[in-house]
Design a protein around this nucleic acid. Structure first.
Length: 272
DNA sequence: CCCTGAACCTGACCGC
DNA sequence: TGCGGTCAGGTTCAGG
């Protein structure tokens, strides 16, 4: 389930673990996207000091090093009573000193659970990431300048974590719909004005989703206050073949970089 | 360098 | 009930 809002919601829900110590580590399945390193044993005995999000990564800090965690497509982190039975696909268990355990669960195993001894921001997986979408470093000008030599589809461009982190498939679809931009538009064909609009909706949709604590965009209202945008579900994602909630046009489905892409041919007109 | 498609995995669902 | 195909919220990497 995890897009950036879910990762942030996970982080906030786990903040109570800070201050507790790890009394035991149990690695049941070390084969994730990258193997869980033996050095993760170093976390045993450590007090959990910080929990920070960078893009869709979570960084669990101790005085000796940092656990770098990614939930992939199907991962989750839960705090459970230590005596609760394991579930299938519980791969990593941090037993804490307060009768609770932190459990990393990930059926598809596209996630990560690494241990970094050095400055985390220097790690290869983090060093080249783009700005946080809800930070001052993410601006319309940033998108505009980086896009000038890119003829790839705008949807691929905003989903590239080296351009901006945290825009996953759902929110890429939704942002482009609200901005009225066809997802196949070459990135270098959009104007600064287009990027101002797109930037605004990326920020607004992510912030709203975080406020709501998850994926759904219940009651999301766009900046124009369009009453047609007040509804219970996503506007386009997963709605191919149904009517556009803004204009009733049947929503189209295309694949862009192997990802389902849904759009309204009337609200998101084809680029020229 | 740019870009696309495949790859990594398991599970849910759908049609036969 | 089972089988095969397709799809799923992420990211990296080979190859054109």
């Amino acid at each position: 389930m995890p897009e950036l809002p879910e990762v942030e919601t996970t982080r906030l829900g786990l903040m109570p673990i800070l201050g507790s110590s790890v009394v035991k580590l149990n690695v049941i399945q070390p084969r994730l996207r990258l193997p869980i390193p033996d050095s993760l044993q170093s976390i045993v005995g450590e007090t959990l000091l910080s929990l920070v999000r960078r893009g869709k990564y979570l960084l669990l800090g101790t005085s000796k090093g940092t656990a770098l965690i990614h939930l992939g497509m199907s991962g989750s982190l839960r705090l459970t009573p230590t005596d609760e039975p394991y579930r299938k696909h519980d791969h990593v268990i941090l037993v804490l000193d307060n009768n609770y355990s932190l459990r990393f669960h990930d059926p598809r195993r596209f996630g990560l659970f690494l241990w970094l001894e050095d400055e985390p921001s220097q790690h290869a997986l983090l060093a080249t990431l783009g700005p946080e979408p809800l930070s001052d470093l993410f601006t319309p000008e940033h998108l505009f300048l980086l896009s000038r030599k890119k003829k790839q589809a705008i949807k691929s461009f905003i989903m590239d974590g080296h351009i901006v982190v945290g825009v996953g498939n759902i929110y890429a679809n939704e942002s482009l719909f609200y901005a009225g931009i066809h997802p196949l538009t070459p990135a270098n064909q959009l104007s600064l004005t287009d990027y101002q609009r797109l930037h605004q909706y990326i920020c607004q949709i992510l912030a709203t989703a975080i406020e709501r604590g998850g994926t759904t965009l219940r009651d999301f209202v766009n900046s124009k206050g369009n009453p047609g945008y007040f509804q219970q579900e996503l506007m386009v994602y997963g709605r191919e073949g149904k009517n556009c909630l803004n204009c009733q046009q049947v929503l189209e489905l295309v694949r862009i970089n192997n990802r389902s892409t849904v759009y309204c041919s009337q609200c998101q007109p084809t680029f020229e």
